[in-house]
Design a protein around this nucleic acid. Structure first.
Lengths: 217, 217, 217, 217
DNA sequence: AATGAATGAGGCTTCATTCAT
DNA sequence: TATGAATGAAGCCTCATTCAT
């Protein structure tokens, strides 16, 4: 059985175990079992369980970083288009690097502390900052009307996307793109109309009282 | 030295440790240390680490369930007002039961398997179903125009809220209410305008091309 | 509730717990629960779990010792009669001190090491020696014809009695006396006819071959 | 250093520790120390302390069961011969599986509750029933004359054998066989003459009175 | 590269025991 | 006397990690 290297299999198995049980509950024995080797043998490929987590997470993380830089370089598109791209990109990465990308998301805190991930150390912050800046730019350009601080809105928007780990599974390129654009539309509606809605909300009646919402769609 | 039971202290300490390190990384020794007792002493109050998790989580979980039932009973308000109440309610619970409510959210899967939590077993599903139904009702009444299936939109909306565990800390009743209403406005914008945005998105240019978004705010 | 002292209740409860679970599995909490007090309260009555075992066991042990001395003093009866008395005595003690006497038997090894039980330290050996001597005396007097060394026969006979902890429960004075005498008869048969039987056994056919045992009953 | 699995050593060590201290007092540390490994290492071979007990006990238990079935199949021998075989068999197993067989006997209650020992669940009862039936058969055929109910006599006889755990150590095949046959002779005497002895006992004088036992040997 | 076996640290849990009230 | 609470030691068990083969 010429198996030049089981590294890819191990990586895959680790990703699945980490996804299924979480990093702390996953065991090297379980990962080995998926591949058909004993736990000790894994150390022929990687130095520690933590390194294995990093290895699993590295590819989606690099992909994300690369895409982010690519998006940042696009100064010619409108804010909305760039946001659409951002969301499409995230969904694409979730899909392409499934389930590793979700492992990354779930254990972001752990990963980000590794010296080896110096480059990612502040990526999360940069990511948030980028979204925030994008929103602010939208406000400045008049495209957006936010219901609150850009930082808060950015967090809410990113949360919507990151929470996908709890319900998303890839369904094909087309369907995933469709989904991304629906999410984009949902977000965009809030970003564009949020300001008005905030004003409107102030005039809404308290709960428990029948009323008709006088909003023109 | 009056020692009227350290149970509340233990519960608090456990909530903090679980929040800080996660259930699996938290140790009884650490929890005991916060209170100033040895790990073994904790067993005077609770039968196992898992029971401790359940105890920490029980109050916010019950609060959530109670509020949910209260909201479900309100048939007189408009869909928008009910959604506003839902979001306010969540933020209020996050705030009142901080950080226990986030422990609950983070370890929902674990908690929900306990026999003791039989009543909560399907709460999560019911919660999602309730939000979904609310959105569908809004569509039927013409209040909402969603960019996709109600289920998907419900998930995205709930995700926005649940992700708050990664950035929210209570800042006082007033500020929290303000935040809740901003989140509501953000969501409402997407729910009302999402359908149009979806149509609009189709006509947006691809990335990398300068354009002006022709949207009237 | 005037409870001048719960010591007797505790002793009883301890005996039951020790009998039911064995000394090492019994817990002070369980004993306390039977009485309706907490485990810590037991230390108002006794210094340690081990002392509690000794206390439980002391009365049957002293009774046994006393009876043994009484029997030893009887030089006027025949060997058979003295053996009958020995067996009756044991059964009576098992019955009167039930279940404490069985706790004693089960944990003899533990008990006998206690300094406080110096007097009992070698009682077990003396007991065996007494039985052995009785049998030897029977041989010398011609009453008995043993199938082997007196020591071995003594051990077998005592084993028959001590094993009663696994099946005996008191059924009233009369029935217990009846039982004792049946056991005595069984033993006596072996002691009287054992020698002949040993000879006979030599001439028995091997197993698996049909034969008729030519023994006149 | 060839290390062809230490499982046998562990099994042996466990048997000795269980024999010496009893299951509940034995520690994995002690067992490991006998083998020269740490307690944790034992879990490379077995899943729990209880499983270790079962493993220790399994072989003698299976041996006993097999022998019992073998004996049950022998319908051609006389009752006495079959009883002789039963006793020889027991002694042989005590000797061959020393000390594991005694561990089995001592912790029968514990062992028999294991799902893994479903087949042995009722063995103990069957064993008693078999002895009882054998005795009853002897009565019916006129070979035996018991001093009481077959059940009681069976219990006493079995007790004689099972109590051997407190004094027996193997002394070689020949000596053990000799011992078995002496025990058999002792038992047989009681079984054959027990009835007469019971009658005789009624007419014996009370203790404390000199008398001559008028029994022809 | 894989195995079998061992290590060692650490965590959960139990429980006899102590002690202030 | 009884309680509630705490201690401390010890035991079982898990698991990442190491290593000779």
């Amino acid at each position: 059985m010429p198996r030049p290297s089981r590294w890819p299999e191990i990586l895959l198995a680790a990703g699945q175990e980490f996804r299924e049980h979480g990093y702390e509950n996953a065991t090297l024995e379980g990962i080995g079992a998926r591949v058909g080797i004993l736990k000790g043998s894994i150390y022929n490929y990687v130095g520690s369980k933590e390194e294995l987590l990093l290895a699993v997470v590295e590819q989606p993380a690099r992909a994300l970083l690369a895409e982010l830089e690519r998006l940042g370089a696009d100064t010619s598109s409108s804010v909305s288009v760039r946001l659409r791209e951002l969301i499409r990109m995230q969904v694409r990465i979730f899909s392409e690097w499934y389930p590793a990308a979700f492992v990354y998301l779930r254990h972001l805190g752990h990963v980000v502390q590794s010296p080896r991930f110096a480059e990612f150390r502040e990526m999360d912050g940069q990511y948030m900052a980028a979204v925030e800046a994008l929103l602010a730019e939208g406000v400045a350009s008049g495209e957006f009307s936010l219901p609150g601080e850009p930082r808060m809105v950015a967090r809410a928007t990113v949360g919507m996307l990151d929470w996908m780990q709890h319900w998303f599974t890839p369904r094909g390129e087309e369907a995933d793109l469709e989904l991304a654009d629906e999410l984009f539309a949902l977000a965009l509606g809030g970003l564009i109309a949020g300001g008005s809605m905030r004003a409107l909300a102030r005039s809404m009646p308290p709960a428990g009282v029948q009323t008709t919402l006088a909003v023109a769609p």
